[in-house]
């Protein structure tokens, strides 16, 4: 890293302060005033956001307020949420998303810490495994779990024939909330490791050395420094996992069909169903889901702002 190569002792570089404006004037080629006032490098990003975020969201809001998504103005689409079926779907979705996000973040965070402090070779192998598994989702993932833990799965039959343990019926079912949680956890875990490893790698070894030099035990270092510094990226990652699970559709539908009531499956029925095709209701339910995601993410964002300064 450049910073390290410039300063092997990891001391901050001190440079004589100078006026960046003078520097700009010297370096930059002359351009018309109006052009230089325009933040050109930002333009592609901003145009993209307008075209793919803002306009579609406005269209979605418009559709959610029309009968069938293209008829007359109505608020009726939103009244769907007063139906206990959809209200419970929303509740179930939030519960399983929050649960698997916390589970995935805690376990994944610990694994990331272990990876970072492990050997170089182990790190490469584990990142390879994580990359492969983070690519594993949707229908193939559900099917892999069915082949393992379904009523006729590998582990189910192994337990029954070699150990006389019967998972079905009664003890366990893959097609239950427990099973769905296991499958969600499978796609949350690699994602957490992938996004958290860089963050934890930025814990500056100097701090730990300093703590050790002062005689602080390892746990004390983690408690007073490590956890506090890691709080911001951890919460940010938690929010991402929450959003990731809240929107999961293919995996859940492939595993349990309509047998567990979660909101993305209800939305999917309105978009893809043979029976209740209704883009208006789908839009309304989607926006309701988006509001809950937005709330979760804003909470996370506010929390992360506090400890951000530690890492700069």
């Amino acid at each position: 890293m450049t910073q390290q190569s410039l300063s092997p002792s990891s001391q901050p570089i001190t440079l004589a302060p100078h006026d960046p404006i003078t520097l700009d004037r010297v370096r930059r080629p002359r351009a018309p005033r109006w052009l230089s006032a325009l933040p050109l490098p930002l333009l592609p990003f901003l145009i993209f956001c307008v075209l793919l975020e803002i306009v579609p969201v406005i269209v979605l809001i418009r559709d959610s307020l029309r009968v069938q998504g293209l008829g007359a103005f109505t608020f009726a689409n939103y009244q769907v949420i007063a139906d206990p079926l959809f209200a419970r779907a929303l509740g179930n979705s939030i519960l399983i998303s929050l649960g698997t996000a916390v589970l995935g973040a805690v376990v994944g965070g610990l694994v990331a810490a272990a990876i970072v402090s492990g050997s170089e070779r182990g790190r490469r192998l584990s990142l390879g495994l994580v990359a492969v598994t983070s690519n594993f989702g949707g229908i193939p993932l559900s099917f892999a779990f069915i082949a393992l833990l379904g009523t006729n799965g590998f582990i189910t039959l192994l337990l029954r024939e070699s150990f006389g343990v019967r998972l079905y019926p009664g003890t366990f079912s893959l097609y239950s909330w427990t099973g769905l949680t296991m499958v969600y956890f499978y796609f949350q875990l690699p994602l957490m490791i992938l996004i958290f490893t860089p963050a934890i790698a930025r814990l500056k070894p100097v701090w730990r050395e300093a703590a050790a030099t002062l005689g602080a035990p390892d746990w004390y270092y983690w408690w007073r420094v490590g956890l506090r510094v890691m709080a911001a990226p951890f919460i940010a990652a938690l929010a991402l996992l929450f959003a990731n699970a809240l929107g999961a559709y293919a995996t859940a539908y492939a595993l349990v069909g309509g047998n567990l009531n979660i909101l993305p499956i209800q939305i999917g029925r309105y978009i893809e169903g043979d029976l209740n095709y209704d883009p208006g209701k789908a839009s309304a339910l989607s926006l309701i889901l988006a509001v809950f995601m937005a709330v979760g993410i804003s909470i996370a964002y506010t929390l992360t702002q506090r400890s951000q300064k530690w890492l700069s």
Partner: peptide, 22 residues
């Protein structure tokens, strides 16, 4: 009937066809 419209999914356009604004 408004209540049914809210409660039940109505197949695409069955409503539209009779909608005066469309």
């Amino acid at each position: 009937d408004r209540r049914k419209l809210v409660k039940g999914g109505v197949a695409a356009g069955a409503v539209l066809a009779l909608n005066p604004l469309w």
